[in-house]
Amino acid sequence: MPRATRAQAESHRQEVLDAAAALVRRRGISGVTVPEVMSAAGLTHGGFYRHFRSKNDLVAQACTAACAEKNEERARILAAAPDVETARRTFVRNYLSPIHRDAPSQGCGIAALAGDVARTDTDGALREAFLTGLREFADQLDELGERPENETSDEALVELALMTGALLLSRASAGDELSERILAAAREHLLSNRPVG
C-alpha cells in the first residue's frame, strides 16, 4: 500500500483532531477512546501514532482546536456586527441558547472540558491548552465589552464564569424546565444589567 503524501497525512491529522474535539466535548475525556476517535475520523486505529504521541497529546491538541473554533466564531460575530453592543448581544444570545446547550460536540470547549481539566495535572499539556483557550475567551469578552486594553477585566471574568457555568448547569438539567430558566436568567442578567461607562 502506498504511503500517504504529506498533504494527505496533514488532512488525516486534522480529521482526527476534529473528531476528537467533537467527541471529548460531547462525552468528556474519559468517555472517549483512541479507536473511537479514529473510527469517527474514518481512519484505522493503526495510524494514530503517526500523528500523536498519546491520547493525552491528542486530547490537549483537541482542546486547542475546540477553543480555536469558538474563538473564530466569536471573531466572525464581532466582525459581522455593525457595532460592539450588537456583537455582544448576538454572542450572548447564541452562547446561552438551547441550540448551544443541545449541541455540546460543536459547543464551547471551555464549558465542556472544565470538569475534566480540573482533575488533571496542573503542569500538563491539557491544562496549558485549556488555560490558553480560557484567556482568549476572556480577552474576547473584553473586546465585546469595550473595556481597557491589555488586561482582562474582572467584569469579563465574571461574565465568563456566568456564561460557562450557566451553559454547564443547563446541560446538566436538560429536559427539565430549570434548564431553560437557567439560560434565560443568565441571558437577562448579562444583557440588561450592564454597567454604564
Score class of each variant (00 low, 15 high):
Arg3Met: 09
Ala9Lys: 02
Glu10His: 13
His12Cys: 08
Val16Asp: 06
Asp18Tyr: 14
Ala19His: 12
Ala20Pro: 03
Leu23Phe: 09
Arg25Phe: 00
Arg26Tyr: 00
Arg26Val: 05
Arg26Asn: 03
Gly28Met: 07
Gly28Ile: 03
Ser30Lys: 03
Val32Met: 05
Thr33Ala: 04
Glu36Ile: 05
Val37Ala: 13
Val37Phe: 04
Ser39Tyr: 04
Ser39Met: 15
Ala41Pro: 01
Gly42Asn: 04
Gly42Trp: 02
Gly42His: 05
Arg50Ser: 15
His51Met: 05
Phe52Pro: 00
Leu58Pro: 03
Ala60Ser: 05
Thr64Ala: 01
Ala65Asn: 01
Asn71Gln: 12
Glu72Lys: 06
Arg74Pro: 01
Ala75Pro: 03
Ala75Val: 05
Arg76Gly: 04
Ile77Val: 11
Ala80Thr: 09
Ala80Pro: 08
Ala81Lys: 13
Ala81Tyr: 04
Glu85Lys: 02
Glu85Gln: 10
Ala87Cys: 07
Arg89Phe: 04
Thr90Tyr: 14
Phe91Gly: 07
Phe91Met: 13
Arg93Trp: 04
Asn94His: 10
Tyr95Gly: 01
Ser97Val: 08
Pro98Val: 09
Asp102Val: 09
Ala103Trp: 06
Gly107Ala: 07
Gly107Val: 03
Cys108Asn: 10
Gly109Ile: 02
Ile110Leu: 12
Ala111Asp: 13
Ala111Phe: 09
Ala114Met: 15
Ala114Glu: 10
Gly115Asp: 12
Ala118Val: 06
Asp121Trp: 08
Asp123Gln: 11
Asp123Gly: 05
Ala125Ser: 04
Arg127Ser: 07
Glu128Met: 13
Arg135Val: 15
Glu136Met: 12
Phe137His: 02
Asp139Leu: 13
Asp142Ile: 07
Glu143Cys: 14
Glu143Ala: 15
Arg147Cys: 11
Glu149Ala: 13
Asn150Pro: 11
Glu151Asn: 10
Asp154Phe: 00
Asp154Arg: 11
Val158Leu: 07
Glu159Ile: 14
Leu160Trp: 06
Leu162Ile: 10
Leu162Pro: 02
Met163Tyr: 03
Thr164Ser: 08
Gly165Lys: 13
Leu169Asn: 08
Arg171Trp: 06
Arg171Thr: 03
Ser173Thr: 04
Asp176Val: 15
Asp176Ala: 14
Asp176Glu: 09
Glu177Val: 15
Leu178Asp: 14
Leu183Lys: 00
Ala184Gln: 04
Ala184Glu: 01
Glu188Ile: 10
Leu191Trp: 02
Arg194Val: 13
Pro195Ile: 15
Val196Glu: 01
Gly197Phe: 10
